[in-house]
């Protein structure tokens, strides 16, 4: 379980997150939906302890960061480091003894090539493989479906279902609502740093429709299409 209480974050005078209260239970998948710049990534970074913030983050396993698999939306990869070495680095960092990486190569990645030459989707898959192999209890996956092919999309969805069945807490984000509705038990709509609405399965359609309305609004009315 992870609990976020009164979480706020500002960069100078700009308020990015405002008074967020959320609770993430074990064995459930949570979605954070929102437009670009809504504060999803910042919220994840605050939960992980990568950003200073106001408010508190609790977890039943302490310290939270040592049990958290964090997949950033754009992971940084070192120059001249192979995919295999990246996995080793992340596993070593958590004291996980990793053997026979080939059999755990979920996405059939070319692990002996430099990670920096991977495509966007391959980088995402590598980052996901590494956090899965760390044996975490909590997972924050920032835009896991972004840039990956159809087949890998299916595998990622299956992985999330598997994590749920193992009692793990999974939080994923997307700015595309439909990618969340298949996998999540609960979706929170984050907009301009605040939680606008939360819903369980039966309320997804209502959130989606409100998000569409707010997203498109009158944006096209004044654009001069020719």
């Amino acid at each position: 379980m992870i609990e976020v209480k009164s979480l706020s974050k500002n960069y100078g005078s700009k308020m990015v997150l405002h008074n967020i209260d959320l609770r993430f239970e074990d064995g459930k998948v949570y979605g954070i939906a929102g437009e670009n710049g809504a504060g999803k990534t910042t919220m994840f970074r605050c939960i992980a302890g990568l950003e200073n913030h106001v408010g508190e983050v609790f977890s039943d396993r302490k310290p939270l960061k040592n049990h958290l698999g964090l997949m950033m939306t754009e992971q940084f990869f070192f120059n001249k480091m192979t995919g295999r070495e990246y996995i080793r680095l992340l596993c070593n960092a958590r004291g996980v003894d990793i053997t026979d990486i080939n059999s755990k190569n979920l996405f059939q990645l070319p692990l002996d090539e430099y990670a920096t030459v991977y495509s966007t989707g391959m980088k995402k898959k590598l980052a996901l493989t590494a956090v899965l192999l760390q044996s975490n209890q909590y997972f924050i996956l920032d835009e896991p479906y972004n840039g990956v092919d159809f087949q890998s999309n299916l595998i990622i969805t299956e992985v999330i279902h598997k994590l749920k069945s193992l009692g793990k807490t999974v939080i994923i984000s997307s700015h595309i609502f439909s990618t969340l509705s298949d996998t999540c038990d609960e979706i929170h709509w984050l907009s301009q740093g605040t939680i606008k609405k939360s819903a369980e399965k039966e309320g997804f359609a209502a959130i989606e429709s409100e998000m569409k309305k707010a997203g498109i609004g009158s944006a096209l009315d004044h654009f001069d299409f020719k």
Binding site: F78, N79, K80, M81, T82, R84, E85, Y86, R88, L89, N92, D112, E113, Y114, T116, V117
Partner: peptide, 19 residues
Amino acid sequence: GSPYVLPSPFSKRPFEFTI
């Protein structure tokens, strides 16, 4: 950014010496 991967004797314990 050459794709050729030079074997590194320090591959088991990344990252400083490996790269």
